[in-house]
């Protein structure tokens, strides 16, 4: 039988591809036949989760810190020594830089100097989920922009895509920089992106997000599609703004900055 070297190599190549495809089949897993998965009984449900932050009710530095610590402590968010490596799920920024373009030189000083509480906006039309090449970040049916740390390849396209700077990358191993970790929640390792998840793990247990719980009523959380929900009623009564609405991302975090008392 005559087969020259090139022919042989070609066949060998095809065989390798065949073996590869066959091998991939083995990864298709079957779940144990009689078992099932279900949402937990306590789960809080909504068609569209949203948050209202009434900044008028944040008065002292402590008000902000309490909320931030609540989140960062239970989620094992590290305090990185180098600001370049910073990781944050919820943080503050001044008015001018939180709402670029909204600033004018004559806004009242109490607003100009007011720290604004920032976190992931869980946009309805989220650019980060649009650009992710592996669906590691994706929209849940209840509107939450979820994060699957197991699938993230660390390409950071989502960070380029996010217009709100809500995403942090683990440039180095964060474990050493978590003092006193919460053993109930996992850590993250180097090379994955993380951010606020609206506390999905708490919603499953019937609890509202940690920041909301610790805010003494300054932050509300509820279903935007339910006209009777707390957030909807609050939004109907107070003038609210969102960050960069002109981008069409439809943020689900609403801010009440103040002003009404002055009208």
């Amino acid at each position: 039988m005559g087969m020259d070297r090139r022919e042989f190599l070609r066949l060998a190549g095809l065989t390798c591809i065949g073996i590869g495809v066959g091998g991939a089949q083995l990864f298709v897993r079957a779940r144990i036949a009689s078992s099932e998965f279900a949402p937990t009984d306590e789960r809080l449900n909504a068609e569209r989760w949203a948050m209202v932050i009434d900044l008028r009710k944040f008065r002292t530095e402590e008000d902000y810190q309490r909320v931030i610590d609540a989140c960062h402590r239970i989620h094992n968010v590290p305090k990185m020594p180098d600001p370049e490596d910073e990781i944050k799920w919820i943080w503050t920024e001044d008015f001018e830089h939180s709402f670029p373009g909204q600033m004018n030189p004559y806004v009242p000083p109490e607003i100009e100097e007011k720290p604004i509480l920032l976190l992931c906006n869980h946009c309805t039309n989220a650019p980060c989920t649009r650009v992710c090449p592996t669906k590691a970040t994706f929209k849940r049916p209840d509107g939450i922009t979820a994060q699957d740390y197991h699938r993230c390849i660390g390409c950071r396209f989502c960070m380029a895509g996010c217009p709100y700077g809500a995403r942090s990358f683990n440039w180095r191993d964060p474990k050493k920089f978590v003092k006193d970790p919460n053993p109930e929640y996992p850590m993250r390792g180097p090379g994955v992106v993380e951010k606020c998840t609206f506390c999905v793990e708490r919603l499953e247990k019937g609890k509202r997000p940690a920041c909301v719980e610790k805010s003494n009523g300054a932050m509300l959380f509820g279903d935007l599609n339910d006209p009777n929900s707390e957030v909807r009623r609050y939004l109907a009564e107070h003038f609210s703004i969102r960050r960069k609405p002109e981008l069409g991302t439809q943020p689900a975090v609403f801010y009440i900055i103040g002003g009404e008392d002055h009208v």
Binding site: R130, V131, C132, P133, T134, K135, A136, R151, C152, I153, G154, C155, R156, F157, F169, N170, P190, G191, V192, V193
Partner: peptide
Amino acid sequence: DMGQPMRIFNVILHPTPRS
């Protein structure tokens, strides 16, 4: 440039045409 280079095949295992 990847943070998790071992997971590079996720791009093929979970193809995402909108990306």
